Amino acid sequence: MLRRTGVHVVKHALQDGFDRKISYLRIAVTDKCNFRCVYCMPADGVPPRAHGELLSAEEIARFVRLVAGEGITRVRLTGGEPLVSHRIIPLIEEIRAIPQIEDISLTTNGVLLPRFVSQLKEAGLDRVNISLDTLDPVQFSKITRLGRLEQTLAGIDAALEYGFDPVKVNCVVVRRLNQDVFGMARLSIDRPVHVRFIEYMPIGSDENRGFCAADAGENPDGELCPEQWDASDTVPSSELRQIIDAAASAAGVGGLEPVDNALLPDGAGPARYWRFPGAAGTVGFISAMSNHFCSSCNRMRLTADGSIRPCLFSDAEYHVREALRSGDDARVVEIFRDAVAHKPQEHEVIEGTERFMSQIGG
């Protein structure tokens, strides 16, 4: 039976108005982070929120139970940095106990992985994505403002040691940062890591991204100035692959080869994967800007303060916190279905959003 909600006709709750089946939920456990990455949040962090403004672990788990009944089978925990939340372990345990949930993953900067990796594994976490944008220690410090490269590298080592599979390394590429992308790609040769290059996305508006005031990419003190970045700083995946291939050939490594579908890492999602000859891991490209994958997007997002967000690049949100707190499960499901029904066909070409990436749970 067809159900009409707003502007779209929906066949059932977990199939949107464009026949995409929605099975994947990304949850921002917190909007706080122990880094201040320049493309993600301002130097002082996001404005502090009162404790009551954020969903509790129990409320998040209840939301997952309800939407699992609607067809959600995969959950990714993000932030901010999810490992700064004291509730992350019990939350994973609660989600793991939901029969319909087949896969639980986590995105992290890796700093706290050595401390928590065994607990995460025991709680039922399936896999991890680790953010790493450069192997240059100085550049790493500038991008993260608070981080040290060796911390994140130790997190990758810990994830591999405890058998997480796959271990993915996410690298956001910004043209004016001039990152050594071939150096990053080489991480996949000797170890079973899957390095994914993500096109820079203009999340956060010019007004709320006032990180520094300069006329170029860095101010006199060396701080990077992302409010100066624009669409020209997006490096298309096709260009990135050419850069890596050329450097690989010069180094005698051999160019990237397509990966057979049988060898793709779990949760491959929108990335397109390649590998160096004989490599233990793969190299992936996520073309969010140059080659939209909207037609196959199967995800919804839950922000830390309790809003459902159908699209990363749209400011449309559906507020579910009060329904959760009132115990009105039917209303929670109704709001979720409405959000799914209004998932846009594709994202627009934009220059910024109202929220920072750390608040959305990118």
Rank of each mutant, 00 (worst) to 15 (best):
R4Q: 07
T5H: 07
V10L: 05
H12R: 15
L14H: 12
D16F: 04
K21Y: 02
L25V: 03
C33L: 03
N34Y: 03
C37W: 13
C40Y: 13
C40T: 04
M41P: 06
M41N: 11
P42W: 02
A43F: 10
D44R: 10
V46E: 14
H51L: 14
G52A: 13
E53L: 11
L55W: 06
A61G: 13
G69M: 14
P82K: 09
V84P: 03
S85N: 10
I88M: 07
E93S: 11
E94P: 02
R96F: 06
I101S: 08
E102W: 00
E102T: 03
L113D: 02
R115F: 03
V117S: 10
Q119E: 15
R127E: 00
T134Q: 04
P137D: 08
S141D: 12
I143L: 13
R145K: 04
G147E: 08
L149Y: 03
I156T: 04
A158G: 09
A158D: 09
L160V: 01
G163I: 00
V167T: 04
V169T: 10
C171S: 15
V172G: 12
R176M: 10
L177V: 08
Q179S: 11
V181K: 07
G183M: 09
M184E: 10
A185Y: 12
R186P: 06
V193I: 13
V193D: 06
S205V: 06
E207L: 10
G210R: 14
A214C: 11
P220F: 00
P220W: 12
C225M: 08
P226R: 06
W229T: 02
T234D: 14
S237H: 08
Q242Y: 01
I243Q: 15
I244N: 10
A246Q: 15
A248N: 07
G252Y: 14
V253M: 15
G254M: 01
G254S: 02
A262D: 15
L264E: 09
P265D: 07
P265T: 00
G267F: 02
G269V: 01
G278A: 11
A280H: 01
V283R: 10
I286S: 06
R299S: 11
R301G: 05
T303H: 11
P310D: 09
C311G: 07
C311L: 11
F313Y: 12
F313D: 01
Y318Q: 08
R321C: 07
R321Q: 11
L324G: 12
H342E: 13
Q345C: 06
E346W: 00
E346H: 10
E351F: 06
E351D: 13
T353V: 02
S358G: 01
Q359G: 09
I360V: 13
